[in-house]
Amino acid sequence: MNTDTKGPGSGAGLFRVYPGGTASRGSRTFGIVLAIATAVFLAFALLWSPPDSGANASENQMGEMVRIMYIHVPVANACYLAFFVTALGSVMYLWKKTDGWDLLAAASAEVGVVFTVLTLATGSIWGHIAWGTWWEWDARLTSTLLMLVVYLGYLALRRAILDPVVRAQRAAIVGLIAFANVPIVHYSVTWWRGLHQQATISRFDPTIDGLKLFSLLFGMLVGVGFYVWLMMHRFRLEYAEAKLESKGLDVALAERRAEAMADTAVDTTGGTLIGPKGTN
């Protein structure tokens, strides 16, 4: 009965809580397709696409190093997508005040943080090979790091507030500010570095074509696929958690009420003042 999922766009499929976990037939099928696509993509990225050398090389002559670009760019792309969805969820929550948007923003921020860490890690590895240092105070690296900290703050705020309504309200405002802040930070950091040194060689935009371009675009598609797949699970988990939270309160109230009833039942002869004696 719980096998029908209408895909990521449909509220009915997403809002269903599955007893066996966060997977449904739809997400499983999608996962299998994604796994196959990933295998094919890795073959393109690591084997079939040519190294960046020889006659068709870009101006940077990155050789085999170019292959990390096929991971780095899609992952960075997915993290921007994730934070955009967080901002969207925040705006929609402030407008509609429905829990689903808040849960969407929360799930997306969490997935986005994972992708941002991967972006920084792959960028850093690339930097180590290209520049010989793990970290360079490059405008993009620096602003990405700041963005990561901003969203860690967003997640920390969510954990710190217990009341779901207050949490959703405050998180939505922080989610919006965090997104508005991305261009300001990027602009100021670029300007800051620009005063001291001209554009570094960190640019990941060599002129590429043919199989290299195809691998990159295919990688972007797989990256977005991973984002969607993770979001399906994270969102359902978030939703189940929210349901459990409210259900847990009901259960605790019912238990407490039953206890009180039992107390009064035992205590009929004593005539103490405790308990709502004689109430229905």
């Binding site: 703050g153 920390a156 300001i184 100021s188």
Partner: peptide, 16 residues
């Protein structure tokens, strides 16, 4: 929580 939320946002102020 306050420093974690606030400091990255005001980083542009420190720079500028």
């Amino acid at each position: 929580l306050l420093p974690l939320l606030m400091l990255p946002v005001v980083a542009p102020v420190l720079i500028a």
